[in-house]
Every structure is written in C-alpha cells, then in structure tokens.
Design a protein around this nucleic acid. Structure first.
Length: 281
DNA sequence: CATTTCACCTGGTGGC
DNA sequence: TGCCACCAGGTGAAAT
C-alpha cells in the first residue's frame, strides 16, 4: 500500500516515539509469512536490543539496533543489527500502549522498556520482516536511486535505451526505489507525459520535467502525511491528506482539473493507470 | 538480459 | 440479505 511518502511518514513517526527505547520482549503471531528469515531467529536478534533510530530506505523501514547497554554509552555507536520492515500493500507499523486493542492480522508485537508497543499489522500479508546481524551481513540498501535525492543526469541515465513504458519504468524499484502506482500517475500528469510513452524515447527536457514533478509531488505528499486511499495510517493511526490532492489517480471519468476532459483509465504493467489525454503527450 | 505476466492474500464495494 | 465479480498503495518468480 504505502509508497515513499507514506513510508517516510511512518518511519519519522516511529522514530520520534521509539528512538532510544529498548526492546524487552518480542511476540510473533504467525509462523509462516511474513518472515524473510525465521521468526525464532528474528525474535532472538531483536530481544534486549536498544533502538538507535528508524529510517526509510526506498519503501522499506529500517530500525537500527544497538546492544542492550544503557543508551548513554551506546550513543553515537554504529548499529549492530537492523530490523527491516516492508509494508507490502496493507501493512501498518504502529506505536501503541500495551492495553490498546490488538487489531486483526497483527503479526508482531514488540514490547519496549518504556511500556509502549511497536506493532506490525498486515491483513493481506504481502509485507515482509527481516533481521540482519551487521557483524555478518551488509546493511540493507535500496536497489535503486532515491527519487528525493537523485540528480538530473543520474535520473535521465536510468531510462536511457529502455523499451518499457515510462510508467512501468517508474514502478521498477531497481531503477528508482520508492515510487508506486499513485505517485507514478500523479507525477506523469504533472509533467504532461503519457504513461505509455517508451522510457528510452523521452527527451532530456521531458525527463527533467518528470524528475521535478516527481520530487515536488513526493515532497508535497510527505508534508501532508501521505495519501490515505483506504486503510493507510501513520504510526499513531492518523490518516494522511494527500489523497485530496490527487489529480488523476482514481479519478476515472471525472473532469481533468486543468482542461475538463474526462480522466482515462487503462491497464499498464498490470496496474490501473490514470491520465488526461489532452494534458499529457 | 530485458520485459511482461501472474500468483500471492484479505477485504471492501457495487451490481444483480 | 446473499452471492459474485472486480478492485486495491507491492513484489518477485516464472514465462516470454
């Protein structure tokens, strides 16, 4: 469900609430999905660790873990481990009080020394949980460039020679990490580019317009706490507001806000794709 | 290798 | 009210 702005919002919210806290107990509900490495091993690598910080990497949330020593002496030290959370389509990462009702499809509950709980809830179970021991494994890295930080020549180079559609290319996480269906459609509309255009045939000027549009739409969405299309909420259970700013996404048949032409919906790369025939070329 | 399709899940919605 | 088809923010394996 969540794309870059939603994941960023959640990561910031969780970071503000659990940084410096300590994991004292771990409960995992299901022993099949969503564990990338075994739930027993993950529980062991989380228990009695301090939380150094929480950050977004692509669409993933990375929790930096330190040793259990008092936080004053672990301050500033590099993390010894990581807990990596991918929210899939319907995942939520919530910081709650221990007595808060446990939602259906809660797969993980981490009890913290402060008394709060960090909970992972995911009805569709497309999300993934992974732990890494940094003494033996590399820290998690996004496979592609971050759309908030990529510069214009690196951005253009991502698409050079590619025959797939620009929409499919935007969704390809090993090119750009963080763009999903909403922000692909919204950035293409704002850049005036049709989603079916071949990525490798866009001019440098068009690609630069696209990079700018994408950057602006992502930053705007982050400021509004993300898009709440159905069930997305941040770490406190609060909905975002960027869905009110959508110009094409899920506005099929409604008039384009620029020219009044009904917004079209097509299927592209297996995903619903929305655009304005008149404003996008 | 690049690109496309499909399976993986549950739940909400709207038509009949 | 029930049943059913269709749709949903993502990804990665399998097919092409």
């Amino acid at each position: 469900m969540p794309e870059l702005p939603e994941v960023e919002t959640i990561a910031r919210g969780v970071d503000a609430r659990v940084r410096g806290d300590r994991i004292v107990q771990v409960w995992f509900g299901s022993h099949r999905e969503p564990f990338k490495n075994s739930s027993a091993r993950q529980a062991k690598s989380l228990e009695d660790r301090s939380i150094l910080g929480v950050a977004r990497v692509g669409k993933h949330i990375v929790v930096g873990l330190g040793s259990a020593v008092p936080q004053t002496s672990s301050k500033g030290l590099p993390p010894e481990g990581q807990w990596i959370v991918h929210l899939g389509m319907t995942g939520r990462l919530l910081v709650t009080t221990p007595d808060a009702p446990v939602a259906a499809h809660t797969h993980a509950r981490l009890t913290l020394a402060s008394g709060r709980e960090l909970r992972f809830v995911d009805p569709r179970r497309f999300g993934r949980l992974e732990s890494r021991d940094l003494a033996r494994q590399k820290p998690f890295a996004a496979p592609g460039a971050d759309p908030l930080f990529v510069d214009s020549s690196a951005f253009a180079a991502l698409f050079w020679g590619r025959r797939l559609s620009i929409k499919a290319a935007l969704l390809h996480q090993s090119l750009l990490s963080g763009v999903g269906n909403i922000y692909a459609d919204e950035s293409l509309f704002r850049a005036g580019i049709r989603p079916r255009r071949q990525a490798g045939r866009l001019s440098h000027a068009e690609l630069e317009r696209l990079r700018q549009a994408l950057l602006e739409v992502l930053q705007h969405a982050i400021r509004l706490g993300g898009s709440s299309v159905s069930d997305y909420v941040d770490a406190e259970g609060v909905r975002g507001f960027f869905q009110l700013e959508h110009r094409v996404y899920q506005r099929t048949g409604e008039p384009c806000l620029t020219c009044g032409t009904p917004i079209r919906r097509i299927l592209l790369a297996g995903r619903s794709t929305h655009y304005c025939l008149r404003c996008q070329h």
